[in-house]
């Protein structure tokens, strides 16, 4: 199929970016979206132009590296699918496709479609862990965990840290990401001692990093490729209120 692509090009963080158009003549519908960009880049290099920079690694929807806004939607049109898992058979011959980076105050553009998401790591460092130094653990069966809790914890822990939630949110909030971690750990019995300090620390870091506040628009959950639901945000809010009241 033949496609027209309009891609955000920005040589460095300081430069002003712009949309640039490219035409690809012969795209296989079996190619993945990123393979389509590979083909474009091979063509650009052959023509002596600078190839388009984009983040990717596993190309199977688990590392969270890929991060494109496709036709206005983070990770594109297919639900529960990362950009790298999206295939060209979802598009039609003659389509015009817009490709942009995540846009959010806390995720500055590094180059073209690559953004800086280290703010997510800082949120984890501010409390998104259980303090369990190596070698101190009791036997794994010492504390059984009800299956439904373990399953719910897993569902929240399935977050891949891609940042689509932030890109989708009109406020650029990192609430869904943060709440998924708070929920995962909060469902584990061994993490109760740190529950209050965790949520206070993470929220403070989230706000300091320049993420916006949450106004319950729900865009984050619709964009999440791992289908993490809004219920995690309710959980975070409850934990936060309790912890803040106790700290006051």
């Amino acid at each position: 199929m033949k496609l027209k692509l309009r891609i955000w090009r920005q040589p460095n963080p300081e430069a002003k970016g712009k949309m640039v158009s490219y035409v690809l003549d012969d795209v296989s519908e079996d190619a993945s979206f990123l393979e389509m960009l590979d083909v474009l880049n091979e063509q650009l290099i052959a023509d002596g132009e600078d190839p388009v920079a984009f983040d990717h690694d596993c190309r199977e929807g688990i590392c969270g590296a890929c991060s494109l806004v496709i036709d206005g939607q983070p990770h594109g049109p297919q639900a529960a699918t990362t950009t790298c898992q999206l295939h060209m058979r979802k598009f039609r011959d003659g389509d015009i496709i817009d490709i942009e980076p995540w846009r959010a105050g806390a995720f500055p553009v590094v180059k073209d479609l690559v953004v800086d998401r280290t703010a997510f790591d800082r949120i984890i460092a501010a409390g998104g862990y259980i303090s369990a130094p190596t070698g101190t653990a009791p036997d794994a069966h010492a504390a059984p965990i009800p299956k439904q809790d373990a399953d719910a914890a897993f569902s929240a822990a399935a977050c891949i840290g891609c940042g689509a939630c932030v890109a989708a949110c009109p406020n650029g909030s990192g609430m869904l990401f943060m709440a998924a971690k708070v929920t995962h750990l909060g469902l584990m019995p061994q993490c109760q001692p740190e529950r209050a300090t965790r949520v206070l620390g993470m929220v403070a870091e989230h706000d300091a990093a320049g993420f916006g506040g949450c106004t319950n628009t729900g865009e984050c959950a619709s964009a999440c490729p791992k289908e993490i639901g809004l219920d995690v945000i309710g959980r975070l809010n409850r934990d936060f209120r309790k912890a803040a009241a106790r700290a006051a």
């Binding site: 009791p138 794994a140 069966h141 059984p144 299956k147 373990a150 061994q190």
Partner: peptide
């Protein structure tokens, strides 16, 4: 065997049976 203990202590949500065991 120590690895599993360590990971559970860190909160790794391994699959569990109805009785709550791994």
């Amino acid at each position: 065997t120590e690895i599993i203990d360590q990971c559970v202590a860190q909160g790794v949500p391994f699959a569990r049976e109805y009785g709550g065991l791994l």
